[in-house]
Nucleic acid binder design. Structure first.
Lengths: 126, 126
DNA sequence: CCGCATTAAATGCACTTGCATCCCATGCAC
DNA sequence: GTGCATGGGATGCAAGTGCATTTAATGCGG
């Protein structure tokens, strides 16, 4: 049925619009971060927990935030300027960079997370 | 369960990114329209079928494409310049405008629709 | 009729995004 | 080593977006 897929797509559009808008608004004014920033903080935090790495390759993270390479590069630059992450060269391949959470970034994530989850509960359940 | 909602949100983010990216790319290079343009064409076409109106109030449509009021205003302006829709003043309230499909807009929708549905089938099923 | 809050849409502005390109490091062929 | 294709990120630029503001029409109380 072609209608079923179209319905599904509209539902995705609606959820995405409502939720990302709410996240941008609330996390924006309370913590100064948006959807992409929060997603990156979360990935970094998860990698930190799971793998105890000293950092994560930019390329790997890039795929997990659904952003173009250039947008991702700027996102990291913004967040570094905001003191949330740190960029460091990776020694084995000096073209690549490692990205690590700063204490401030970890703390910001810790505080933003419950708000984020509350918004999900409010806008994603229906 | 808080994890379930987070998972759902990630799924929405992923579907949205993959699908809207594919639509923008293909409909963009073949028909010169993006996700928002297609959605507006579709709404206008549907209203045309259902209600035989001479047009639709901007405000009503605005809600159905998940765009801010300003973005919507510019979307309509772009599409009017591209010859896909026409803006006309509405007589009973001269602040509002009616938006109607042009023949070209109807034709563009007719041709873009199967491509759009094919993309949905490819990226939204998994 | 007059002022004034309200509403519809347009516009100035800052910011984010994607595409194309550029820069630098790598590594493979010779 | 030299040359050259490849790959990782950064950057110039044009386009789209949201917020705040503006412009214009409405309508209500006096």
């Amino acid at each position: 049925m072609e209608t079923a897929l179209a319905e599904k797509w509209r539902a995705v559009l609606a959820s995405h619009a409502a939720t990302s808008c709410a996240i941008d608004r609330e996390l924006g004014e309370t913590f100064g971060i948006g959807v992409s920033e929060f997603e990156l903080l979360e990935r970094l935090w998860e990698f930190e927990q799971e793998e105890h790495l000293s950092g994560s390759r930019a390329q790997v993270l890039s795929g997990s935030v659904h952003l173009s390479q250039s947008a991702f590069s700027r996102l990291v630059a913004r967040m570094e300027k905001a003191g949330l992450v740190r960029r460091s060269m990776c020694e084995d391949d000096r073209r690549g960079i490692f990205i690590t959470l700063t204490d401030e970034g970890r703390e910001r994530y810790r505080r933003a997370r419950p708000v984020h989850r509350r918004i999900l509960a409010e806008t994603l359940s229906d």
